[in-house]
Structures are given as structure tokens and as C-alpha cells.
Computed example of a mutant assay.
Amino acid sequence: MKTPFLSQYDIIIFDCDGVLIDVNLLKCEAFGKAVGGYSSEIVDTFVNYCRKTFGISRYVKFKEFLSDFANEPFQEEKYKIFLNNFAKICKEIYEYADITPGCENLLSELSNQNKNLYVASGSDEKELNEVFMERNLSKYFNGIFGSPKTKLECTSIILKNHPDKKAVFIGDAFSDMKTAKEHDIDFVYMSRYTVQSEEQDLICRKESKKVISTLKDLIYSSHKSENTKYVPI
């Protein structure tokens, strides 16, 4: 088994949702369920916003829900209820969600090559570490980072641990692409499970070093994959 494209990198950073685990649509729905009790119009608008900004931390989004969607002043108690609701739903989602095609084969191969593998995610860091332990994925990674730190902060921590090493970020969202560009590292765009807008999808394709459908493409091909047609969800 070979990974020719990734052989040029010392540090490989993965987003989690929609890259390692197929949870994007389920987590978008979870944002709506977490704020249940509001009108369907408010909730639906919020869920659509969450899809367009996927990869941004829940700690940011629930504050935005109160100020920008519910038009209410910040309420610490209500904010914590939203976070707790969301965490409970996510725990269930991660327990049964599918690992993406090629994920474990790729991680195993890269680990055997002594590559430095990391996760930089918008999901909760403590939650991610528990999930990765339960799903037997943590053994592949040097570190698993998430919110409340931003992806920029997570990636900065990773890169500071490996100065002068070549790195790549594999993600499925506009926020992943922006993180890679901010740190001046290559970006691989994984398109199959993205829930972002067509405009964001096209930007990610344009700005990427390589476009793939799933991680399986990185095992079997050293050439840039065909840009799969965008299909609105």
C-alpha cells in the first residue's frame, strides 16, 4: 500500500467531521435539536447557517444563536443548556457514525511510515479524545486538538512543535482552507461529505493543492483526482 502524494509531508493534519468520521449532516441537525423550543423558522435558519459555517466551534455558534437568531441578550444558563444538549446528541452520533472510506487504511499506512499525524477540529477537544479512544483511532495520532480553541490556534500549536517541517491540512470546509492559508501550508480538499455552499465548495477546490472524494484516493493515486461535481444537499 502506497501514499505517494503524502510522502512529501512530515506533518499531516486532519479535520475530523466529514474527513475521518461521516457526521456532518447529523451534526447540522443536532444544532437545531439543541435549541429546540424556538419557532421552526428560527431553528431552520440557524441550521442553514451552521451548514454554511461548518467547522466553526459550537462555543461560537450558540452565542451567535442567541444574539443573531433569537435576538436575545446573552444568558449564561441558556447557553450552557444548549452546549449540554448538543454534547449529549453528539456523543450518540459519534458512537454509530461511519468511519469514512479509506480512513483506517490510510492512518495505518502513514503511521507505519512514522508520519506525524494530528487532528485540528472545530469539535470539542475533550469529546474528540474520548471518541477517538472508543473508536480505536487515537493510536494513530500524535495529538488531537479541538474547541474551545479555534482551528487556527490548534494548527499553530501543532506547527510550533515541528518547526521547519513540511505540513498539509486535509479538510472539507472553507474554515479548513482558511486555516491552511493562514499558516501557509498546503490544503487537500475532501469533497464527498461537505455541507457547505456551492460557492464555498468552488473556492476550496480552487485553493487546494489536491481535491479528493475520500481518503481512499490518497492511498491509490498520486495524481490529482477529478473534481467531483458539486451536488447541493
Rank of each mutant, 00 (worst) to 15 (best):
F187L: 02
F187Y: 13
Y189A: 04
S191V: 05
S191N: 04
S191P: 12
R192G: 09
R192N: 03
R192L: 06
Y193A: 02
Y193H: 00
T194W: 02
V195C: 08
V195M: 04
V195P: 01
Q196S: 14
Q196P: 12
S197I: 05
S197K: 05
E198W: 09
E198M: 08
E198N: 06
E199L: 14
E199Y: 11
E199I: 12
E199M: 10
Q200S: 15
Q200E: 12
L202K: 14
L202C: 06
L202V: 09
I203R: 09
I203M: 13
C204Y: 01
C204W: 04
C204N: 12
R205C: 15
R205W: 08
K206A: 13
K206W: 07
E207Y: 12
K209C: 15
K209G: 13
K209Y: 10
K209L: 04
V211T: 11
V211Y: 14
V211L: 09
V211D: 10
V211K: 07
I212G: 00
I212A: 00
S213F: 06
T214C: 04
L215S: 04
L215F: 02
L215A: 02
K216S: 06
D217K: 03
D217G: 09
D217C: 10
L218T: 09
L218R: 05
I219E: 02
I219T: 02
Y220W: 13
Y220M: 13
Y220T: 07
Y220R: 06
S221Q: 11
S222C: 05
S222K: 10
